[in-house]
């Protein structure tokens, strides 16, 4: 019934505005400038996609000539076929999806538990433990790569896709996942305390409070965490580089790096840019679709909060 509630609040808002005709007109003008601003920024933001798509359709060796061409001549659609076969996109893409989905489920589930503990329950050493988790974000991962590698080898996680998933099922204790705990904690701290107190008085357990009250009200935080997590795993090349050896479990983000070239190579910009951009476009599209479709969860969040908060 989230939509109905939202519609209702909307209706209230609408009726208060419709009193004056002048107000209404002014609103129209405001909308127009709003759209102008949105279209301008939207246009600027689409530059990379346009540029990437244009480059991805150019002939090898003529990706960048002067004067620049927006619409390439000739248009080389074959680049996409090449990139699909060269990078085994069907397989690497599936690997990326698998890692992103399973790691994200783990992240959202376990980090929301931990965040609930930090946000809604008081216990000794809470702040120190929270700071301990946050501090894992401050040490550059480069210097812990070797011992992590040794640890993973002892656990049998080298060249094993679980290396990219399992650590994310531990509520922010490993790698950068404390980010999500912090994020969810911030949102959970925002919910009125009376919710828990009333439920506790009714004899509810903490788990019920977490599951039935706080989680449903944390829609935006969960959706944001999910999209960040998916994006992180989708674009992360370091973990797949270090922990995976074989092509069987290579991910798209790592495959993209194969198009880069050394700075000292005499071309001052070697690499197969057209193919790099084609694979970047292929990587971008699923994320955009996902982001577009996840948005309703942001919106639903308002309805929940509006209902429960006041």
């Amino acid at each position: 019934m989230g939509l109905a509630t939202a519609a209702k609040t909307d209706a209230i808002a609408g009726s208060s505005r419709k009193h004056e005709r002048g107000h209404f007109l002014r609103l129209g003008l405001v909308r127009l400038t709003d759209y102008a601003i949105l279209i301008f920024i939207g246009g600027v933001s689409s530059v990379p996609l346009i540029w990437m798509t244009s480059t991805s359709l150019k002939e090898t060796g003529r990706e960048f000539v002067f004067p620049p061409q927006i619409i390439p001549d000739p248009i080389v659609w074959l680049n996409y076929r090449d990139v699909w076969s060269v990078t085994h996109m069907h397989q690497f893409g599936l690997n990326s999806i698998l890692v992103a989905v399973f790691a994200t489920i783990g992240t959202v589930l376990t980090c929301s538990l931990v965040a609930f503990g930090f946000a809604r329950i008081d216990f000794p050493a809470k702040n120190s433990l929270f700071f301990l988790l946050i501090s894992t974000l401050m040490l550059p991962g480069i210097i812990t790569l070797v011992p992590t590698f040794v640890l993973f080898r002892l656990m049998g996680l080298i060249n094993n896709p679980l290396a990219l998933i399992v650590p994310w099922w531990f509520g922010g204790g490993a790698f950068g996942a404390a980010f999500y705990v912090f994020l969810m904690r911030q949102f959970m701290l925002q919910l009125p305390r009376e919710l828990d107190e009333a439920a506790l008085a009714d004899g509810a357990t903490y788990f019920r409070i977490y599951w039935n009250i706080i989680l449903p009200l944390s829609g935006p935080a969960l959706a944001t965490s999910a999209i960040f997590s998916i994006l992180h795993h989708w674009n992360d090349f370091l973990a797949p580089l270090i922990f995976i050896n074989s092509e069987r479990w290579r991910t798209m983000a790592l495959a993209l790096r194969f198009f880069l070239e050394d700075e000292t190579s005499h071309g001052a910009g070697g690499g197969r840019w057209n193919l790099l951009m084609a694979s970047a476009v292929l990587m971008l599209i699923p994320i955009l679709v996902l982001f577009f479709s996840l948005q309703k969860y942001f919106i639903r969040g308002i309805a929940f909060t509006g209902l429960a908060g006041r």
Binding site: V114, G117, P124, L151, P167, F170, G173, A174, Y206
Partner: peptide, 23 residues
């Protein structure tokens, strides 16, 4: 309450002990 608190944050602490403390 304390116990519940520690149980809720235990995945994170466990993760820290298993994957992060040694490195």
């Amino acid at each position: 309450r304390y116990l519940a608190g520690y149980l809720f944050i235990s995945p994170g602490i466990l993760g820290f002990v298993i994957f992060t403390a040694y490195p």
